[in-house]
Each structure stands twice: as structure tokens, then as C-alpha cells.
Design a protein around this nucleic acid. Structure first.
Lengths: 124, 124
DNA sequence: CTGTATCCTACAAGATACTG
DNA sequence: CAGTATCTTGTAGGATACAG
């Protein structure tokens, strides 16, 4: 790579499997679940209460996908009655750092975004 | 904040408007459009060809939303026939840096993710 | 408590046709 | 070229009931 290349050139044509992984891990419910589990391990119903207002079905789907991709660990604590705890994994923590950077970006730039929106809406 | 707080505590309860902004700017088509515009300004149909396989409707919707949020600039070059160019904005470039970091993360961790998937799928 | 199984609907997105 | 308009379809997600 020559020094005339822009920094972005190194990432031209992002592989489809990388896009797909981000799609599976950066969706609405996944972001909320990762947020919560980053603070502390939680059981299924605790998580349900912590993430308003997710349905059982959506929470199950989200947890399975996060578990499959190695972002969270599912730990069976006991049976009769069944107790299951969800914990963020090492991998999950590394992506949460990047997600947090996005939240910081939002906070830093929200004023500019709102100005852009006002300009756009006024131009109609 | 005391030194017993975890780094994540500072971000507890992310404001809904920040989540909403990320939802509007990190969806499938937006990521692809920002990728392309980061390399060079493009006209509508150039962008359509560059992003396979987006429909006119989805591309229009995506561009309007990105423009409204100040991520891209829409520049009318001439009329008769109309020519319109889309360019990444300063704000767009700042978030693209973070998106690129996510792609790098995907590349760095894809092997671990695939191992997790194999383990999960084998456990069925 | 931790889920599955069904049914249902609302909205995103595709196909197609048309316009300034 | 750069869109808009209309119609249709696919699918994620909600409501509800039930099970281990």
C-alpha cells in the first residue's frame, strides 16, 4: 500500500460474512441485552424486566443468536426449578467497547445532527 | 464517580434519541452507502450500481434519512438533465471511522465467532 | 422459572410503472 | 438522470397459550 492511498482503501469491499455478523449483533435488542449483561450477569426474567419492553420470544431469539455467535455465555445454575444465568463473554466485552464508542459519538454529535434535521425539515 | 465504578457505569441508560440515531444510521443499506461515499462522491445511479442490489426505493429512503441526519450532502450539479451528487459530510466521516473499527473487529474475531458457532451447532 | 408453539399483524422492502 | 407512486409480498416481532 502506497502513501497515496486513503485510510479507507484498506477496507474496500468488506466481506459479506463480516457485514452479516454485525447485522446479527448490532440489532436493537442485542444492543440492549449486551448493555445490561455488561453490567452484571442476569437470569432470563431479570433480563426481561431490565430491558423494557421486550417480549419473551424476542428475548429468546436474541439470546440464542448472541450465544451462537459467542457474545454471551448461557450458564445453567440448577434444575428443579430451572435457573439459567446469562453472562457477557470475553468476545462480547470487546465489541461492547466499540458500541460504547458509538454511544459516545451520538452524545458528542447529537447537537449537530439536530441542526441538520431542522435545516432539512425547514427546506421542505 | 468513585473509583469502584466500572467503566461501563458512565453509560448506563443510554438516551433513547441516541439509540434511535444509531438505528437510523447503522442499518444495512446505510452502512453500504456510507462505505461507498467515503471513497468518492457518487451520483444516484452510480451509487445504485455500486451497491448491489439495492432498489431505487430503498436507496432513496436511505439517502434521504442520511441527508436529514447530516451524514451525507446532496449537491445538485445542473439541471436539464438533472445531475445530483451525494457526498459524505464531515459528520459522516466521523462515524465511518467507528464503523471501520467494527469491520476491523469482525475481521480480528471472525475465527473465534466461527468456533463458537460450531460449538453451538454441535450441541443441538 | 425458562422457555416452545401458534397465530397474527404491521411495517420494511421488492416489483413495476410512470414523471419532470 | 433522478426520482415518485402504487401495489404486493416477506418477515420480524407481538399476543397468547402451554410445557418441562
Amino acid at each position: 500500500m502506497t502513501d497515496t492511498a486513503t485510510p479507507h482503501d484498506a477496507l474496500l469491499r468488506v466481506a459479506p460474512e463480516h457485514r452479516e455478523l454485525l447485522d446479527q449483533v448490532l440489532d436493537k435488542w442485542s444492543l440492549r441485552v449486551l448493555d445490561e449483561l455488561c453490567e452484571r450477569p442476569l437470569r432470563f426474567n431479570e433480563l426481561r424486566r431490565a430491558v423494557p419492553v421486550v417480549t419473551q420470544k424476542s428475548l429468546t431469539t436474541t439470546l440464542r443468536r448472541l450465544e451462537r455467535n459467542g457474545m454471551v455465555d448461557r450458564v445453567v445454575l440448577s434444575s428443579r426449578p430451572v435457573a439459567v444465568e446469562y453472562r457477557i463473554s470475553r468476545l462480547g466485552r470487546t465489541i461492547q467497547d466499540l458500541i460504547d464508542a458509538l454511544y459516545v459519538w451520538s452524545a458528542d454529535n447529537m447537537a449537530d445532527v439536530e441542526r441538520a434535521r431542522e435545516r432539512f425539515d425547514a427546506a421542505e
